[in-house]
């Protein structure tokens, strides 16, 4: 069971286990003491439009995410939060018109979507699509092996992969029968979100962008998903959450909260910004 040993190393290493046990968030909100850590993602002056209609959505986004940091982006509907996530992973619906984005020092926009994934960038989709006829386990293994291949690692055969994936299923409290079902086919909203995080766990991506993973989740599912995201954190990984609601941020505590408005990040702060938002809505922020 070579694969089992491999799986344990990654998913259940001492560092991970410690964090997984931590259900109470451990980072102080608003701390900004990580300035010395290496930059993972750096976005400068990013502008983008919808390719089909030419409608401008992003109007100069600046964002720096360092290793080990957790960021959250909040903002009204249509402010460009989801567009930013999709542009970063190379969604074909959008066209970058200005600005730069580097990930681990590489120009993101010079890379194909699959290369960005190989480099360790992950987007959890807001509404993941269903793929009838392709089993979840095959899909996960294809994805896992594509990344391993790009890193020059040996691909996992089905047995090795099974050993790799089972601890991750347990972490997400997912039934192993999930593996034999077709990708997202007939999944409930909560199951789809869990499945996205399972993909993140399998890929072991360094930077995860979570686009509204709290939508459509009941409180138990939210707790499970958040615990899994916390459990996956490593000193060299970062999380960027897009959300409307504070309740997600109570489970996954961000150090930085950004407010997005009309295609730009207009304010950055800590959890205090969220509290202000809960109290008075976006109006109080824009006048602040």
């Amino acid at each position: 069971m070579r694969g089992a040993a491999f799986g344990c190393n990654r998913a259940g290493g001492p560092g991970c286990r410690m964090m997984r046990r931590t259900t109470v968030p451990c980072r102080a909100s608003g701390s900004s003491n990580g300035a010395g850590r290496p930059v993972l993602l750096e976005v400068k002056g990013l502008e983008a439009k919808i390719a089909a209609t030419g409608q401008q959505i992003l109007r100069g986004v600046d964002l720096t995410v360092r290793e080990g940091e957790v960021h959250a982006i909040m903002g009204k509907n249509g402010s460009g939060k989801s567009t930013l996530s999709k542009v970063l992973v190379g969604h074909p619906d959008y066209e970058v018109t200005a600005g730069t984005a580097t990930f681990k020092g590489r120009d993101l926009f010079a890379l194909e979507p699959e290369e960005r994934s190989h480099d360790g960038l992950f987007l959890s989709f807001q509404s993941p699509i269903e793929i009838p006829g392709v089993s979840n386990v095959d899909f996960l293994r294809m994805a896992c092996n594509a990344r391993r291949k790009s890193k020059g690692q040996a691909e996992l055969d089905p047995l090795e992969f099974y050993a790799h994936v089972v601890p991750k299923l347990e972490m997400l409290k997912m039934d192993p029968t999930f593996l034999n079902r077709n990708v997202n086919e007939g999944f409930s909203g909560g199951e789809k979100k869990r499945n996205e995080i399972l993909q993140l766990a399998v890929l072991e991506s360094e930077m995860s962008i979570l686009d509204e993973i709290d939508s459509g989740l009941d409180i138990d599912a939210l707790r499970d998903v958040a615990a899994a995201v916390n459990g996956l954190k490593r000193p060299d990984t970062s999380v960027l959450m897009v959300t409307h609601y504070k309740r997600l941020l109570d489970y996954i505590r961000p150090e930085y909260v950004h407010i997005m408005e009309a295609g730009r990040i207009t304010q950055t702060g800590g959890m205090d910004l969220v509290d202000q938002l809960e109290a008075g809505g976006y109006a109080t922020l824009s006048t602040a």
Binding site: G90, P113, E114, M142, A146, R147
Partner: peptide, 20 residues
């Protein structure tokens, strides 16, 4: 795009989708 965002190359994605 869903496949590609998970690192699976376009031609493999195409084949899987058509087969599926």
């Amino acid at each position: 795009f869903y496949f590609r965002a998970r690192g699976i190359p376009a031609e493999v994605a195409r084949q899987s989708l058509v087969y599926s």
